[in-house]
Design a protein around this nucleic acid. Structure first.
Length: 87
DNA sequence: TGTGAGCGA
């Protein structure tokens, strides 16, 4: 399951995000979105968990939790249409 | 600060 994590503090790193979700189960990957123009965090990220049950548990528990002074929002992410167009 | 950068195996 792709998990969308928003309202993150800029000082939050992927390692911290990964560690938070690893407490609920196996985490496939954790990624903090960085603005390539500014080189800084966009304030949100994504976490992939193979186990949907563990993912939902993590979402239910981590959503609204305060980390580094900010309450992060954890929801199921939308399917991002990756550019596979080969026209 | 709210739906994704990365170009290489």
């Amino acid at each position: 399951m792709n998990i969308f994590v928003a309202n993150l503090n800029f000082k939050l790193q992927e390692d911290e995000l990964l560690d938070l979700f690893e407490n609920f189960g196996e985490v496939t990957s954790a990624k903090i979105i960085i603005d390539r123009e500014t080189g800084r965090s966009k304030g949100f990220g994504f976490v992939e968990m193979d186990n949907d049950d563990e993912a939902n548990s993590a979402i239910a528990d981590l959503n609204g939790q305060e980390v580094h002074g900010r309450e992060m929002v954890v929801k199921q992410a939308e399917e991002r249409p990756r550019r596979e167009r080969r026209f």
